[in-house]
């Protein structure tokens, strides 16, 4: 799939509350993956996970840095945001739970599916948060089928 063994790395900045650019980074990531010939099922999973990660920043955080790393074995997305953080991660991971405002819900956000969608599409998912400081998310998707869960 990839001839380069050193892997590929991209860094993106996401601004909180910037609904007009929301989705741009995940669309960008999708294009990168398609260009290097990543299998379409992996592209779809990554697109969903990165979209939800991006929207969480747009809706709740001040800003974030998203790093994409691709090696022949795996694809890794790391998101670190500055924002209010998450008080109760177990609750935030529960499908249907959301702290979205009424305005966001009217726009069709706040289904309480964001973090669960990320987890579902990842082979490995880690989240940590410091309330008042920010949230960090690690998403790994295996490219080598034998490593797939």
């Amino acid at each position: 799939m990839m001839s380069d063994e050193n892997g590929l790395s991209h860094r993106f900045e996401i601004n909180g509350h910037d609904f007009s650019n929301a989705g741009r980074i995940s669309t960008n990531i999708k294009a990168i993956l398609q260009e290097i010939g990543i299998h379409s099922s992996i592209v779809v999973r990554t697109a969903i996970a990165s979209y939800e990660a991006e929207m969480n920043v747009v809706m709740y955080a001040h800003r974030a840095v998203l790093t994409l790393n691709i090696t022949p074995e795996k694809l890794h997305l790391k998101l670190e945001d500055e924002g209010p953080g998450i008080e109760n991660i177990d609750l935030a991971m529960k499908e249907g739970f959301s702290t979205a405002t009424d305005e966001m819900r009217e726009m069709g956000f706040g289904a309480g599916m964001g973090l669960p969608n990320i987890k579902k599409n990842a082979d490995k998912f880690e989240i940590s948060s410091i309330p008042g400081k920010g949230t960090s998310i690690d998403i790994t998707i295996c490219l080598d089928k034998t490593e797939k869960k």
């Binding site: 609904f19 007009s20 929301a22 989705g23 741009r24 995940s26 669309t27 999708k30 779809v44 697109a47 969903i48 979209y51 726009m107 069709g108």
Partner: peptide, 16 residues
């Protein structure tokens, strides 16, 4: 098929 009319629907269609 949706009743949403704001710009963020386009990214969803594009990504999928």
């Amino acid at each position: 098929i949706t009743l949403q009319t704001h710009q963020n629907i386009i990214a969803v269609a594009k990504l999928k």
